[in-house]
Write a protein that binds this DNA or RNA. Structure first.
Lengths: 359, 359
DNA sequence: TTCAATTTGTTCGTATGTATC
DNA sequence: GGATACATACGAACAAATTGA
């Protein structure tokens, strides 16, 4: 109601343009004419036109006239909010990641979102680059699998920047303990516990625990191992826990084989995941061990790898695709409601196959 | 040199803002002051300010003053060309696709490009949506695995639009014959030929060929099958070729089993790919067939599936990750040189495993 | 709370310059 | 060249919002 004259004139002209009264690339009446039509000063007419020029409806040509333009369409087009979610994982094509990504993609695309994908190869520098790219891009949300979650992460600044810009983020599989970020993950303490308990129930008293220590999953699974040992009054020596990192995952296999030779009383091995379990099993079989007859192995994540080896691995479940679906829905919900959803923790289940000697 | 007064004033003010003389969120001198400073009319001052407001350097507040703003930075930021490549595949997490995508992602990210990912689930409508999203997004290039490449594609209009907008595109695995688009693919005629020839060399005279017919790979592989039969003077009945589509891939297994019962002379089966070969093999083994003792099967694509079954599949090689790397480099090269690169055709090789009876 | 000074916003009027057709 | 149309520039008045005494 408190409309000014020039706004009113601009509105009327805009209406006429949109209605098609003034087609694109034709002139509108000259300033003098409009001045008379609306009974205002020339300056007012010019202000109205300036507004429409700015909005992209008109284009002035000195000496010629004021033409109808359609730049406003472009302006609208580029202003369309690209509904894009960034996804950063450590790896892409290996192991359980394709399933997770599939779940994310499926869910996002049915809700009209796009997926911007990057992987860090478990390398800090790459993680930083990925994050920066995502921020620059203007993604509406981020799903991140943290790189080396158990080590001090030099990219915390980038994560803080995300938070400050109000870009929702959820972490999957693990979460940096230094940051209070929402997460969606498996209860890894429980999975370590269940694996250990299962072996104990299968009469194993001397165990070897092989875990990755640069991410939190490995640390939590180890915690579960220790809890189970305590509950069942199992004593274990420091040598019973072998740790490795992304960089040393190849040598740890030989280390484990040596440890088995040194201590023949060991009859059960709990592995960080199916990948290392599979690699270890292959090595041990070539060295003459019989699995599960004289050695039991248990993996984790119920990946395709647990079914490909010579002996099918007993392992623990991982939601995989469901985790992807949940993560995508979490982000979409958080974007639409503007408040972070609850964390999700999955309880792992034992998947019995052939790598543990039956009772 | 033909600078107007208001432009000159605007330039000076902009300089001072950029130099830090007027920090962000502080006021610049009021109009009256500037009027005196520059010895011009208020109107001229206002024009200069209007210009800078438009550019995002200033922000006016009625009754308060004109403040320095930094919206111009955003304008620059959103104008940064996001180097993004769109990737559309039929499937994401299955089969050989994770490896292809990994190759693409790895290559793109080292060259500073981002990857926008979508999958069509081999569905036209989804393909259309994906394409439109990519176009709207303003990707710099596209890598597409065509959906149902052997059928008339209702989305050709979208592909033509891409071409008109000068967005480089390369197709992988197959290419729509109606469109003269560049492609990177395996020589599928040759792979069909090699598979057939291999069985013939292994004394198989009665063959069954099981192929997917909604994409071109299936058609080409069938062509290779026919060529091999002709070369070695093998007669085959129309029943020797069983075709299926994405929708009928489950029933075709039973169809093939029936066909084997009807014609016990068949001793060799050539499958479209490892996926169908694996499914068929599992079914036939449960029905009592012995592979390779009384039945030989050959797959295609050298996927992980060829190594997971009870019997390891003899198959044909597929570049997978290398295809992804090549596709990414193709697109980057085409973007930088502004002219489409050459097509790439890979020659498949036989990968001998255990599913064909040795001579 | 009120009020006056300050500052930007709107609108009028007028004159001259310059590009296009 | 002349008519037309937009561009620049000056001057003046009042309105509306903000700020601080």
């Amino acid at each position: 109601m408190t409309q000014t004259k020039y706004q009113k004139i601009a509105d009327e002209l805009r209406e006429k343009i949109l209605a098609g009264d003034y087609p694109v690339d034709t002139t509108i009446p000259p300033e003098l004419q409009l001045q008379k039509d609306y009974a205002v000063s020339r300056h007012t007419v010019r202000q109205a036109i300036a507004l429409l020029v700015n909005e992209g409806y008109l284009r002035r040509e000195k000496g010629s006239g004021t033409y109808v333009d359609d730049r406003y369409k472009q302006a609208v087009a580029t202003h369309v909010e690209h509904k894009t979610i960034g996804v950063i994982t450590t790896y892409l094509s290996d192991y359980i990641f394709p399933s997770i990504i599939r779940g994310i993609e499926k869910t996002l695309s049915t809700q009209g979102y796009s997926l911007l994908l990057a992987s860090t190869n478990n390398d800090y520098q790459l993680e930083k680059d990925c994050l920066q790219k995502m921020i620059d891009y203007g993604v509406q949300g981020l799903i991140v699998e943290p790189t080396k979650s158990n080590q001090y992460n030099p990219n915390l600044a980038s994560y803080v920047q995300l938070k400050e810009q109000g870009i929702p983020m959820v972490m999957i599989n693990a979460a940096y303990e230094e940051l209070a970020t929402p997460y969606i993950r498996v209860d890894d303490v429980q999975s370590g516990f269940l694996a250990t308990e299962y072996l104990i129930h299968h009469k194993h008293r001397h165990l070897l625990f092989l875990t990755k220590i640069d991410d939190l999953q490995g640390k939590y699974r180890m915690k579960g191992f220790i809890e189970a040992c305590e509950k069942y009054n199992l004593q274990f020596s420091p040598e019973a826990i072998l740790t490795y990192t992304t960089e040393t995952r190849k040598t740890v296999i030989l280390q484990a084989a040596r440890q088995l030779k040194n201590d023949p009383s060991i009859t059960g091995i709990i592995c960080y995941n199916d990948q290392i379990a599979n690699a270890l099993m292959t090595e041990l079989i070539t060295e003459g061990y019989q699995i599960p007859q004289n050695l039991s192995i248990i993996g984790n994540d119920d990946s395709a790898l647990s079914k490909t080896g010579i002996v099918k691995l007993t392992t623990l479940s991982h939601p995989k695709e469901k985790m992807g679906i949940d993560a995508a829905n979490w982000i979409i919900q958080t974007i639409t409601t503007q408040k972070p959803q609850d964390n999700i923790i999955y309880e792992p289940q034992l998947v019995e196959r052939d790598s543990v000697r039956p009772n």
